[in-house]
Design a binder for these strands. Structure first.
Ligand SMILES: [Zn+2]
Ligand SMILES: [Zn+2]
Ligand SMILES: [Zn+2]
Ligand SMILES: [Zn+2]
Lengths: 155, 155
DNA sequence: TTTTGGGTGTTACAATATATCATTCATCAG
DNA sequence: CTGATGAATGATATATTGTAACACCCAAAA
């Protein structure tokens, strides 16, 4: 789901506003990395970001990318897909939320969902156990609706 | 939570029974890796397993460990903690279930939970989206009850 | 016996991530 | 303005995690 220019600009501007509010610095580099993540046609790995960054900045090294990613993660502007070692832009960075993803192993499609049911059950589990989550990770690895249909056809 | 000898033997025997039922081969190597994972004092990385394996088998290489881990994962005898790149024994390998973990960043403690609420909400989300999960990953990264208390004291 | 398929041994390598130290830059107290 | 402070960046090297590829072994089937 490649973003068009307009929504990309919107996202970047929104990020800038958020960071200003929070009094943290969205530097040019961090902004550029956010742009690359959001403009990517799906989840993108750190080294792929690094490659694309080379076309803008002179000879960046891995730490450059990882530092920017760390910042963006902390600010909730992107999510990390732990099971893919890849990053995606957050579709609603305003409010903090559990990162919930449906990841199709067949077509590679990744979809962020925001199920209040899941959020509630996670909250309840925390209440029951006294655990306090800072970064909830929910990743459902499987087959998306579309791929199930096309798989069925083949059989 | 280091296991005592008795429960470790029990787990291994149980695994053997399960594999026999399923007509898959729990070879000595696979069994040994399962033992190492279960006997470990918490989540254990592949290369740590490799090191400990050296004390039993002559000069094993990474693929040896990863192959065994793949098998054990498929059989649901262990879980992979994606956010830690580490493995833990499953506390109830009889029935398939969503892997749900509370991971304390302060003390490193990892606890597998089996919340039916979470399981239900995941099922519901799949129903709503038409997605079919093969491997659900739920990892709550945060602070356990005990660490919250001791952290509070310090402040 | 030949074939076949799963499991293993071995080497080399790919992909992901971090440690460390030097340098730059904005900010602010004096 | 000046020097001090801390955050951000640059740069090099290295650690950690995970696979590809190919040869070999062995048990079960044909
Ligand atoms: Zn999000
Ligand atoms: Zn799909
Ligand atoms: Zn389990
Ligand atoms: Zn703790």
């Amino acid at each position: 789901m490649a973003l068009n220019q307009k929504s990309l600009a919107k996202i970047l501007q929104h990020a800038e506003t958020l960071c200003k509010q929070r009094e943290v610095r969205l530097t040019p580099q961090r902004s550029k990395v956010l742009e690359l993540v959001c403009a990517a046609d799906g989840p993108i790995g750190a080294y792929e970001i690094l490659d694309r960054l080379r076309q803008t900045i002179g000879n960046p090294a891995p730490p450059t990318v990882y530092r920017a990613l760390d910042f963006l993660l902390e600010q909730g502007l992107i999510h990390k897909l732990e099971s893919l070692h890849a990053y995606v832009g957050c579709s609603h960075p305003d409010h903090p939320h559990a990162s919930q993803f449906l990841i199709c192993s067949d077509c590679g499609d990744v979809r962020e969902i925001e199920s209040s049911g899941i959020a509630d059950s996670l909250r309840q589990a925390q209440k029951n156990t006294g655990f306090k989550a800072k970064r909830p990770v929910v990743e459902l690895l499987g087959t998306c609706a579309r791929c199930q249909i096309s798989n069925d056809r083949k059989v």
